[in-house]
Design a protein around this nucleic acid. Sequence first.
RNA 1: GUGCCCAUAGCUCAGCUGGAUAGAGCAUCGGUCUUCUAAACCGACGGUCGCAGGUUCGAAUCCUGCUGGGCGCGCCA
Length: 654
Amino acid sequence: MTTLYSRVRDVLSSATVAAHAAGDLPAALASHEVPLERPRQASHGDLSTNLCFTMARAARTNPRALAEAFVGHLKASDTDGLLDEISVAGPGFVNLRLSGAGWTGAVADAVRDGAGYGRSSAGGGERVLLEFVSANPTGPLHVGHGRGAVFGDALAQVMRAAGYDVDTEYYINNVGNQIAKLGESVWHWVRLLSEVPDDARDERVAGERPELPDGFPEDGYRGGYVAELALSLVRGEAGDVHLGVDAPSWDDNAWWAAKEPTRAGGRQDDRALADHAWRLMVARIERDLEGLGIAFDGWYSERRLHGLEPAPGAAEAVDAVASCVSRLQAADWCYTGEANDAGESPVCFRGTRDDVPKSFRDTKDRVVVRSDGRPTYFAADIAYHDDKLARGYDHLINVLGADHHGYVPRLKGVIHALGDLRRAEGDAKAERWSGERLEVQLMQMVALLRDGEPVSMGKRSGDFVTLADVVREVTTTSPESGRDAVRFIFLTRKGDAQLDFDLEVARKTSMDNPVYYVQYGHARLASILARAREQGIDWQVGGVTLEPLGHELERQLAMTIAAWPEVVARAARSREPHQVAFYLLDTCKLFHSYFTQGKQAGLRVISDDVVTSRARLTLIAALKQVVANALALLGVSAPDRMAQLEPTQTPEAE
RNA sequence: GUGCCCAUAGCUCAGCUGGAUAGAGCAUCGGUCUUCUAAACCGACGGUCGCAGGUUCGAAUCCUGCUGGGCGCGCCA
């Protein structure tokens, strides 16, 4: 499907071919290579290209002179009459003013393509695995996780629309010290609650910070959610769990004991408890994500990598971690490190090797298997990324919290090493494995505020405001509003700057909180079309002419519609879903302006002039389509109607 | 100590492979509803793009140094 931009690019492209043949331009450009942008100033035309600049730089000539020669070929290439005026401006811009037939074409494009308008094949079907959130299942999600979640989810949608083949995945860290600690914390609550009459239990665990049981570990998880979790276990709501009565010994990881029974470790009962605890947390995380409209294509269990459970559909568990480590060891990517006092040695990853490209060479070799034989988190991650690539993905994107940035080069070094290893093993599919295959999108921290005052978010302290709490609290006018507001707030800024999330601001329904501005725009567009239906004006008949469109604002609106496929492609390429959010704001601003002028200056969409009304209704329909498509990519609802509020009214507080 | 991210209007933020006179919203001030939703619109006010150099036809954007804020640098995950 062609778009206005692609049609104009075709014209420019063939003009470069003609100009090049005539010796007026140093090179010819393919259509997709032609730079095309909307000038900031309307007087500079509808579209503009600076292709003469880049060519002049390469050929070391004067861009202005190139432009003068180039425009001579444009008229002849414009066989469909898209261009009205062609001019050279400034140091070498070529400015284009489109003909009416040209710019109204964007309106027709949007109406024709409907929900598909804006989609493209720019991504070329590249298979991408997008991993995000992946929060440890030791507590509920907080707002920081929410930011990564919303970003990742919107990015997946945007990239899919731009022609990437994206799968999303959540990596469950259900192995290791933190899980053991969760199990231990739950155990203390279970022991306490077992001795409390059932009708008194609810009160005992109530609140964000219930009084801890005696003997609760200093570094345990203190949040009320742990008590709730224990309560559901005690009541058998989570299935049949055998509850131990003695204090557990988590010093050595229970999971390790299962793997290597010869080592001293936790008992079967304790493992069962930890196992139930993280599963319940994962279920809660999944529910909280659903509250934000987020569902993952896959959930990947770390236990699987350690051979503690089989892959879905597989008969037997495989210890991929051990396999990766031993193979890396054979290829000298891992080696036995210095022994500790007990004479036990760790295994280290040689991320400092000279043949690791400098940008992701590590400053220090890292332990993958501890001296006591237990693999580290890093070891599991090696196996995990090996598995990701082995599944056939061309490109891996990990959305991580900014506090993990030091980890990134190490991980890229690992992929480099795995590629080297796999090629040495004769794996033809590993031909292109390199550190560049992994891309990390860092999300900076979120500070939760209430009226400008910081709200504490420590997981261990128990003084905890969860993501679900936040969504619930910012819910204002409709059940979806909390989700919509939270998503839009996260998506109206880039991910690389820290973000203050103020609960009071998020509760407002004013322009402090622009999601409503955009939704109101959509509702207004919908109501115009509804009005047209009431009055029996059918704009969807054949032969509707767009010729009556001609007002400057209508031209700008059409050009905005024309830009939508470009916005999607660029947002996907640069991994910046916020560009879609700002596009929405710009588009709705233009529309609101048009609408108000219509009321005040005889530019009404629906008038006695049926031919003009039909043309304008088509424009409105195209706009509504574009706004709806953009909102869909962001996962924000597009209401056809919004309840009217009094101008100064703020929603009633709960 | 060392590495990464950030610094644009009073506040919150955009600014597209370097491009034309740096833009929104909020706040402040002043206007606009008998007619498709005033959750809207129009106007005014407001900037030495943290500081200092450099690269070039051209720098908020690229490079170097500095200042300030955040975050890493574990046989934690």
